[in-house]
Design a protein around this nucleic acid. Sequence first.
DNA 1: TTGGAAATGGAACGTGTGACTCATTTTTTA
DNA 2: TAAAAAATGAGTCACACGTTCCATTTCCAA
Lengths: 288, 288
Amino acid sequence: MGLGGATMDERVPRDFETLRATILERRQSLPKRIAQIAAYALDNPDDIAFGTAASIAASAGVQPSTLIRFAQQLGFDGFTSLQQVFRERLRERNSSYDERLAALRAKAEEGAGHRAIFDGFVAAASTSLSDISRTLNEPHFEEAIALLAKAETIYVLAKRRSYPVASYIAYALGKLKIRNQLIESAAGLNAEMVAFATPSDAVIAISFSPYAPATIEETRAISEQGVPIVAITDSSFSPLAQFAKVWFEVAEADFGGFRSLSATMALAMALTVAVGEKRRDTGRKRKA
Amino acid sequence: MGLGGATMDERVPRDFETLRATILERRQSLPKRIAQIAAYALDNPDDIAFGTAASIAASAGVQPSTLIRFAQQLGFDGFTSLQQVFRERLRERNSSYDERLAALRAKAEEGAGHRAIFDGFVAAASTSLSDISRTLNEPHFEEAIALLAKAETIYVLAKRRSYPVASYIAYALGKLKIRNQLIESAAGLNAEMVAFATPSDAVIAISFSPYAPATIEETRAISEQGVPIVAITDSSFSPLAQFAKVWFEVAEADFGGFRSLSATMALAMALTVAVGEKRRDTGRKRKA
DNA sequence: TTGGAAATGGAACGTGTGACTCATTTTTTA
DNA sequence: TAAAAAATGAGTCACACGTTCCATTTCCAA
């Protein structure tokens, strides 16, 4: 029986994920040419969805007939039914991220309602997240983690708009049992607090344009004491950048004059938790 | 010239958005049957991408030849070239949102690296945003805005993990020149602060499981004074819900034990700005 | 109302499609 | 190593496809 198990009562994969799993599972036992197509299919699913049997076969470097045997071996009637699965995949996947965002943004801009405001903030947050996900500088990220992991006390410095981020960092550091000091504006004791920091500590400073003068000033002061600084800011021209050992540029989308904090938050949390992990690892090594 | 302007040098739409715009623009001047297809095409772009001329024509209730006339009227050679645009649309839209998220999450789960941690937080934030965007209860949203808009002073109540959100709300309210009072845990004057609130004020209370006892207690106290409460919390069983006039259920995804705040932040900002707008509108009306 | 033009329906056509068949090659088994 | 079985390549074929063409209907202007 040349057609393998196709005539048996085995179930035919009707959705792409099942199909994919089936192919991966049988990969080892497939004949060479069939395996060649299998690999091509999983690598270029869009081509399978749109191409003709002939064009796909050519791209994959096999004969059209082999393509049909491949389909039959998986339990399909022929190439066409196999292709349906690949088409269904494209059809079923919801409108793309960008389309959704565009829709949200359009609604937010045209509609004057309150729902539009909400959509605007969601869109701004999503955009910011997707931006930072693309642009995060990994070496900087690793450097910042290393720097913070070996600090005795982590000082967290931010005012005004950035303050919520700082307070969440402080909360998270506390939960991770990492000594930290939040420098807020309330009591006016900042100068004294800053004076305690030494080169074996570290600072996370966060500030966005328009930069709070107090943040700048305190960052300058603390950097002069030789304390290493990790800065999260919004441009290379930020006054924070010149004082910082490592700095991140985070482009937050804004809506209605208020900038999203989602990207900054994600970065801040990642930094914090990564530092926590690095410390745990280092501690474990020291003991061993 | 039966084929309309097709023979002129007008540009043929090569991408879906241009095509869409072109169709919408000409909609009025199109013959009946052609317009019928135009509407069908914009409503069921996926069918155009995958179907055959015959099947599409049948679905749209026209003759196949009309379908081709439609394509030609838009400047295409024939139906096939028109179809390419619809296929390109599916092909070009990046891997779907869900696929991207799944990828991020997979990386975050398998990989132990620091980048994985970052991806995890971005994924958690994205998930939360997409969830709240789907599930936001609009009547509740409007009600909360109305309630907060007419308050003399808005009290903002949150501890621990929720505190960053509260501080951002307070910052934003301040910028919008809306009188507000942030109730933090620092000074221990909370009871006194809470005592000032009257029924013509309002409260935004934020708390997630495990609920900070202080937040619950203060919310209870303030509700007994007849002050209307808007609660942002994470479950219908939240102790906040029973005290609140309006409450929002926000499901935040978490990563590494730290919950994202992105959805809560977006909701909080939307609330704040919407209240600001509503107040401006009302003020304008009063003057007029 | 009538003439002409545009729009439409439907049949006919040629091309390119997927699938089948069979000869050949490769792999496996004895 | 020989024989059998499986896999592959290539040619063929029926047919469904997109397209074209022409007869008919609909619409508009005179």
